[in-house]
Design a binder for these strands. Structure first.
Length: 808
RNA sequence: GGGCGAGUGGCGGAAUCGGUAGACGCGCUAGACUCAAAAUCUGGUUCUCGCAAGGGAGUGAGGGUUCAAGUCCCUCCUCGCCCACCA
């Protein structure tokens, strides 16, 4: 008997797939398309890790499943190559980032092939390839033309170690997402994409996305829409006024003070008399502190009185103006009205500094909270008394608008996307600075702006990238007037490169334009996007760009991803995160080499648990999967070697087969791979019990063929080997997915459970078409059941095909 | 503080619509094969009482709805993740 030897059959089939270009696809409108992709990897020097193995096993199982359904399946691969790791390695070793990147790509590609992932390699893309970033730059110029890319001097997060600015999304708890150092604020002129213009559009579509709720919630919170009003409080002295933002204009009669953020432009000027010195020193200290330090001490609030007063526009009362660092400069107007009766923060502040607390919303009798922040009936609010919050809000805002004292206003927490980086290894921003014409986008026929080769990649820390040292490159001419001009030396955030790659896959080698809409509108949007990272940043940016492309008429859909498949992490055996320093890293390629093979690895990572949960690697678990694959192998070998003179009656084997097909197909549709594999294991266990004798040759062949077809998305190499052995045509992936016949899933005899008062007391076997009354009678006649049923039962319920429930 | 999840054997987990809790795998265990071991095959494995048939308990805790609750409702506990002074 031939032994199962993955080391022999896996390379064999990988070579066949490659030679036959089995996974290369083209637009074919006669077929249903399925487009599935993982989030493309950053090809690090360390090679593939278990997370990659997990992600792409999911991708490939989906791809192969739909291929077997006759769909035209696009499963592409690309490389997210710009970024700090390659550049830092280049600085350390003096090797060009492009060279290191090319080596890493070659390694990753080899590893993907050894995993047996069914990728269309003819569509391979690489974000640091000029043929690709030409079009990233082109998108930039299009955004510039539409006013969606602009330059602005502003306070920005700055990482002192990586010597670059960072986007909000790249600051995690006050630290740089890459190197972990404490970030600083620095005022610099930077490039932004105006994602805020799409805040509402992005928000509106979230509800309809087939994405995990936690990702949708994270994006909603990140956009952070607040509907409210801006309200002017006139200064008592002079003509000025302070504009505050509030979501609760209905509580304005309770506004007993004003608080300015320390950064507020009026704060210093309002400091008066005895309060001047204290205010100035408070502001100086507060501005120096990082936002992290300020937001960290949430318990104790601090602040100073400026000595100035403003007038509450509705009550006419004078209210003191304070400066406090619990108000943020960057949100709303940087000023708030303090309503201590109905806001916890204002209450804490008022209590500490003995400011008046005026209740203006009636607290329900049952409520014993100190601060009532819900809506309710207005009191102490003049002519608005007795109104409900929502009515009062409309009327008060209307009154403010009529009197020029305020206006309805919606704010967002989301800020514009800061995209310039003072680093070498990125796509150069395609802008030329001309004395006469200012910032001029590089015309399409002069793209790409190719990243020049330089000697020293390290940033100098002067706020410019190392590109500034490439003087020949920097000095150019203005596309408008031809006079000498200077190139922009900042590069784009890597997230820009990854914001459109899912479109490029559909038309990867187009040299004339970024993509042909006809191709993209066929393949896109993605049917499945698989990953376990990027809840907000990347997944919001791709959505943003796709919305823009839609508005530009370049694509006919707004949302890039139909279904987001968000999976968990694979941890080390001890349940902690895998890390080199702890020495608990499992290398998927080692697992293959140990003799388990890629098929066992792929099947195992999908069997560990539901894909959305984290799981811990178990070296005994993969041995169990290897045993399972071995049992399939042996089953086919035993069949091949048997005498094939079977007689008999095939019903039992058919029922098991058709039930399994139904279960595995259902489980696949809901991406429940662990239970699909469990069902296949049960199927194999059943087939072992049947033994080869006693059934017809045809029944066995059917049963084994279905088995091989169903295991193919998990263990494709073995499936093709056994498929060939069973005499199948071509490759399994081009064969059909087995179908089930509902009639054949029903056994002739069914087992019905019998409960008495909810407790299981026995089972009865009946023919599948038995009359319900007869089943009930049989249940009551059951020996053990009869022991518990004394006298006439109150009720007898029959649940078809399942149980009889007797109530006494 | 807010939001979203989750608590089931020794372990990972299953139970898709309220219908026999613990599928499947790991581990453990008994047997077959073997001179022996490994591999492989077959059986057992929630706890508990019982030789067995069978009984009792049981899905974080407590209550409720129902013929029937892991699943629905209420109160509470614990853990995880994300956001976190956003007015």
């Amino acid at each position: 008997m031939r032994r199962y030897n993955p080391a022999e059959i896996e390379p064999k089939w990988q070579a066949v797939w490659e030679e036959q270009k089995a996974n290369e696809v083209d637009v074919d409108t006669s077929k249903v398309k399925t487009y599935v992709s993982g989030m493309f990897p950053y090809p690090s020097g360390a090679g593939m890790h278990t997370g990659h193995a997990f992600s792409y096993s999911i991708v490939d199982a989906i791809a192969r499943f739909y291929r077997q359904h006759g769909h035209n399946v696009l499963n592409p691969m690309g490389w997210d190559t710009f970024g700090l790791p390659a550049e830092n390695y280049a600085i350390k070793t003096g090797t060009a980032p492009a060279k290191v990147t090319a080596e890493n790509i070659a390694n990753f590609k080899k590893q993907f092939k050894r995993m047996g992932v069914s990728i269309d390699w003819s569509r391979e893309i690489n974000t640091s390839d000029p043929e690709y970033y030409k079009w990233t730059q082109w998108v930039f110029t299009k955004l510039f033309e539409r006013g969606l890319a602009y330059q602005k001097e502003s306070l920005q997060w700055w990482c002192p170690v990586d010597k670059t600015v960072l986007a909000n999304e790249q600051v995690e708890g006050g630290h740089c997402w890459r190197c972990g150092s404490l970030v600083e604020k620095k005022s610099m002129k930077q490039w932004f994409f105006k994602i805020t213009e799409y805040a509402d559009a992005l928000l509106d579509e979230i509800e309809d996305l087939d994405w995990p709720q936690k990702i949708k919630t994270a994006q909603t919170n990140w956009i952070g829409k607040s509907v409210g009003a801006e309200i002017q409080f006139k200064l008592v002295e002079g003509d000025g006024s302070i504009t505050v933002f509030s979501t609760r204009p209905d509580t304005i009669f309770g506004a007993s003070f004003i608080v300015l953020a320390p950064e507020h432009s009026l704060a210093l000027g309002l400091a008066k008399g005895d309060f001047k010195e204290a205010t100035e020193s408070y502001i100086k200290e507060a501005v120096k502190k990082s936002e992290m330090e300020r937001t960290n001490d949430t318990k104790e609030k601090t602040g100073v009185f400026t000595g100035s007063y403003a007038i509450n526009p509705v009550s006419g009362e004078q209210v003191p103006i304070w400066v406090a660092d619990y108000v943020l400069g960057g949100y709303g107007t940087g000023a708030v009205m303090g309503v201590p009766a109905h806001d916890e923060r204002d209450f804490a502040f008022a209590e500490k500094y003995h400011l008046p607390v005026v209740e203006v919303i009636e607290k329900p009798a049952a409520n014993d909270e100190q601060v009532y922040h819900d809506e309710g009936v207005l009191i102490n609010s003049g002519k608005y008394n007795g109104l409900l919050s929502n009515e009062a809000r409309e009327k008060i805002v209307a009154w403010l608008e009529e009197n020029g004292l305020g206006a309805a206003k919606t704010t967002y927490k989301m800020r514009d996307w800061l995209i310039s980086r003072q680093r070498y290894w990125g796509a150069p921003i395609p802008i030329v600075h001309c004395e006469e014409h200012g910032a001029v986008p590089v015309p399409e026929d002069q793209l790409p702006v190719v990243l020049p080769e330089i000697e020293d990649y390290a940033p100098k820390g002067d706020g410019k990238s190392a590109l500034a040292s490439a003087t020949d490159w920097v000095q150019t001419t203005c596309p408008e007037c031809g006079k000498p001009a200077l190139r922009e030396t900042d590069t784009m955030d890597g997230y820009a490169c990854s914001s459109w790659y899912l479109l490029r896959y559909g038309d990867p080698h187009n040299a004339e334009r970024a993509w042909d809409p006809e191709k993209i509108n066929y393949w896109n949007p993605l049917d499945f996007y698989v990953g376990g990272d990027h809840a907000v940043a990347h997944l919001l940016y791709v959505r943003f760009w796709t919305h823009v492309f839609h508005d530009m008429g370049l694509v006919n859909f707004k949302e890039p991803v139909k279904k987001l498949v968000y999976h968990g992490y694979i941890n080390a055996e001890d349940g902690t995160k895998m890390s080199k320093s702890k020495g608990n890293v499992i290398d998927p390629l080692d697992v293959i080499d140990q003799g388990y093979g890629a098929d066992a690895l792929r099947t195992y990572v999908l069997f560990m648990g539901p894909i959305e949960l984290d799981a811990s690697w178990d070296s005994r678990g993969i041995a169990g999967i290897y045993r399972f694959l071995n049992r399939i192998w042996t089953l086919v070998q035993q069949y091949e070697e048997a005498s094939k003179e079977f007689t008999g009656h095939d019903d039992a084997i058919r029922v098991v087969q058709h039930k399994t097909i139904r279960k595995v197909t259902d489980d696949f549709r809901r991406l429940s791979f662990n239970t699909a594999i469990a069902a296949l294991m049960e199927y194999v266990n059943e087939l072992y019990k049947f033994k080869v004798e006693g059934f017809s040759n045809e029944a066995w062949r059917d049963a084994l063929t279905a088995l091989v077809q169903m295991v193919a998305p998990f263990a494709p190499h073995m499936a093709d080997e056994l498929w060939q052995q069973l005499g199948g045509e071509g490759l399994v992936q081009n064969a059909t997915w087995p179908e089930w016949d509902e009639d054949l899933t029903v056994e002739d005899t069914i087992t019905i459970a019998v409960q008495v008062n909810g407790k299981l007391r026995g089972e009865v076997s009946v023919g599948k078409d038995t009359d319900p009354e007869e089943i009930k009678a049989k249940a009551l006649a059951h020996e053990n059941v009869a022991k518990f049923v004394t006298g006439e039962p109150k009720k007898v319920i029959y649940v078809p095909g399942r149980l009889v429930s007797i109530v006494i």
